[in-house]
Write a protein that binds this DNA or RNA. Structure first.
Length: 698
DNA sequence: TTTCCCAAGCTTTTT
DNA sequence: GCTTGGGAAA
């Protein structure tokens, strides 16, 4: 290691006057973490122990004690989290905290790579591929090799993409990954290897990077150009990493790089809340932090400020069932609180009715809608509930699931912008060319081959008789591209230009639900307004995707902040007064896919743990006894193995009872239709009789 | 070569 | 319920 020279602090700053009273605002453990000196620090923070608060105060403390805010880097899991923390720190202290560098690993790496692209043989305008873009690229390459028509079944593009990604973000090799995750494809290993290599070469050649590249190429950049690593690391006087339990090996390595000059790195996390193993996250990172970083201090936050003791009792109970022991026992000094309730509903629809009614009832008790959340394993688990909420006019937003930029029509528009930004972006070309009538995969490939190898002015169509049939369409497309090419044109103008061209095509392609899509497109213009440039816009959409469904929220009750529906993954780090966990079924939570691997089942258990520890006051876990399945009609279900057999003293069974129907009005002679059959009012009744609830006849 | 139609297959979580 | 893949018509 290089010799170190420690710069003394400026005299004026040596004894700073702190404007915040840290000791009063924080408990002793939080205070210790927020004000700890330099060096590597691991903060193990159980759920609800004020981790975010501590980080916010940590940022403020560093700024107050003289660290220039732009020398502090706060790495978070989503950009939303970074924004929120820096906003809170600013509110606490002053605007200086806004200048703290904050964001995700991916965003930070993308920015670094743009600055130093040339050093790894990329142009700075490289395009970022999201997972489905990347699958599309793989699909084209697969077809080019003729693998799609191999006699034995060959994995699909999505499967290939996730396999390739798994190989790269776990640092293994293809053969091993296939053996472990998809042994049925072992016979295709040679072809897969070749395709994998094609994919890497193709991206490099066309200036494309997928999510894994952002991290891995940054590491390559650092390793091949140590001076860049030093440069970057020397600007990072303090590195703070949130949700460290969900970092993958590449991210852990990056943290080490970032901290390689100043060694001031604080990582915060909770091994019991690690829920991104499927994405390559490795709990080992947090467990091995003390060995990886010399002289690391380990601090703990243990007292829970979020939840009532009954909620924590359930959380603790759940963790005690894990095969791996977690060194956690959450406690609170809060008194009182209701036992979490377990609700067995006869079917999905009744479950949805129960949740909707309970929400209305709680709202009557003055709990704001946005202080309540409904959490579930997978985005589609809430469909039934969404219908019910809409029917009752309860406003909601949904997080998780489909992203705006994943909708086909939005991808189409984006592809035009991407081509303008990076004319080498073959997958984007492929998309926009195939929108033209008469252009299919083959023609598109031909044109792309010609475009991406042609020198000189992009978007100028030569006189080429081969394109006769489609010349008109191509000509209009190229006019649009030329019009938007310079990024000096205001972004909104660019988007509008593309839309004017695209809308007729869109109408043609998606005739049935064109109006709905048109709405999204108009919304999309509104989003574009917030960005200074096309480049910034594209990067932001790739790295901080906007929830499609969050936009769809009915704005009918503009002034009432909406109820939150969210996948458990997307609810990470949030808290709510009341939480409903729905569809707590075996095969859903834990997911059916997880059942073959004990490690994965354990991750599902942690997922439920994360869900229930979001609750401050009220917690309801519900499941339907019958579920409608697309192939098999109604199916009997089993409650999640995680909640099965938890003592009533910890998780209280609650029975749903239908209000008895009002007496039927006497039929009259007139044939006027009966009054619109509104479903009778229902009551939630609390009964102790668990067995009766198991076979509700209704 | 494109496009249309039908059958088959599968369906998680996210940067 | 939706996407993907195959086959056949245009």
């Amino acid at each position: 290691m290089a010799r170190r020279f420690i710069l003394k602090r400026d005299e004026a700053l040596a004894r700073p006057t702190l404007t915040l009273d840290y000791a009063a605002a924080l408990n002793p453990q939080q205070y210790a973490a927020a004000t700890v000196g330099g060096g590597p620090v691991l903060v193990v923070a159980g759920a609800g122990t004020g981790k975010t608060r501590t980080l916010v105060y940590r940022v403020a403390y560093l700024v107050e004690t003289g660290t220039p805010p732009e020398r502090i880097t706060l790495l978070t899991f989503t950009r939303r989290a970074a924004r929120e923390m820096l906003g809170r720190a600013s509110a606490l202290l002053d605007g200086r905290c806004e200048r703290v560098q904050g964001g995700t690993f991916h965003a930070f790496c993308a920015a670094t790579l743009r600055r130093h692209a040339a050093q790894i043989g990329y142009a700075p305008n490289f395009t970022i591929l999201d997972a489905s873009d990347s699958a599309d690229v793989i699909d084209v390459l697969r077809t080019a090799r003729g693998l799609h028509q191999s006699s034995r079944r060959f994995p699909r593009k999505g499967t290939l993409q996730s396999l390739f990604s798994a190989v790269r973000n776990r640092g293994g090799d293809l053969a091993g990954t296939i053996a472990e995750r998809a042994p049925q494809f072992t016979e295709h290993l040679d072809e897969l290897e070749a395709l994998f290599a094609d994919y890497a070469a193709y991206k490099r050649q066309r200036g494309l990077m997928d999510y894994d590249d952002l991290l891995l190429l940054t590491i390559v950049l650092f390793k091949t150009h140590p001076e860049v690593e030093r440069l970057v690391a020397s600007t990072m006087q303090h590195v703070l990493v949130d949700e460290y339990q969900d970092t993958n090996p590449a991210q852990a390595l990056l943290v080490a790089c970032f901290a390689s000059v100043h060694h001031n790195v604080m990582v915060v996390g909770d091994d019991a809340q690690s829920i991104y193993r499927f994405r390559g996250a490795d709990v080992g990172n947090i467990l091995q932090f003390p060995t990886r970083f010399e002289n690391a201090q380990v601090l703990k936050l243990e007292e829970n400020y979020r939840s009532t003791q009954p909620v924590l009792d359930l959380a603790n109970h759940l963790l005690s069932r894990a095969a791996r022991r977690y060194d956690k026992h959450l406690f609170t000094s809060k008194k009182g609180g209701d036992r979490p309730a377990l609700v067995a509903a006869p079917d999905d629809r009744t479950e949805a009715r129960f949740v909707a009614q309970a929400i209305l009832q709680l709202r009557e008790e003055n709990i704001a809608l946005d202080r309540m959340a409904v959490l579930f394993r997978s985005a589609f688990n809430s469909y039934e509930l969404e219908v019910e909420l809409s029917r009752r006019g309860i406003p909601f937003v949904k997080y998780g699931g489909m992203k705006l930029a994943e909708a086909a029509h939005i991808k189409d528009v984006l592809a035009h912008l991407k081509v303008a930004e990076n004319p080498q972006d073959a997958p984007a070309w492929n998309r926009i060319l195939q929108l033209l009538p008469g252009v299919g995969p083959k023609t598109a490939q031909g044109i792309i081959g010609w475009i991406t190898t042609a020198d000189g002015e992009p978007f100028v169509l030569p006189e080429n008789p081969r394109f006769g049939r489609i010349a008109g369409g191509l000509k209009r497309l190229f006019e649009v591209l030329r019009a938007i090419q310079p990024d000096q044109t205001p972004l909104v103008k660019q988007v509008e230009t593309v839309l004017a061209y695209y809308e007729p095509l869109c109408k043609e392609k998606y005739f049935e639900d064109f109006p709905k899509r048109l709405q999204d497109l108009e919304h999309f213009v509104g989003i574009a307004e917030g960005y200074p440039s096309r480049a910034a816009f594209l990067q932001s959409l790739a790295l901080d995707p906007i929830e499609l469904t969050a936009l769809g929220a009915e704005p009918q009750d503009e002034d009432e902040p909406p109820l939150v529906l969210s996948t458990i993954h997307s609810a990470k780090g949030l808290e709510f007064d009341t939480v409903f966990v729905i569809q707590a079924l075996d095969g859903v939570l834990p997911s059916g896919y997880a059942l073959k691997d004990p490690e994965e089942i354990e991750e599902e258990l942690r997922l439920l743990y994360v869900a229930i520890t979001r609750a401050e006051q009220n917690l309801f876990i519900s499941y339907p006894l019958l579920r409608y399945s697309r192939y098999q009609g109604d199916q009997l279900t089993a409650p999640s193995r995680f909640i099965d057999g938890i003592p009533d003293a910890v998780l209280e069974p609650m029975q749903l009872v239908e209000e008895s129907a009002p007496p039927l009005p006497q039929p009259t002679k007139s044939l006027s239709p009966p009054p619109r059959a509104l479903p009778p009012d229902r009551r939630v009744q609390d009964q102790r009789d668990r067995d009766a609830s198991a076979n509700l006849p209704f």
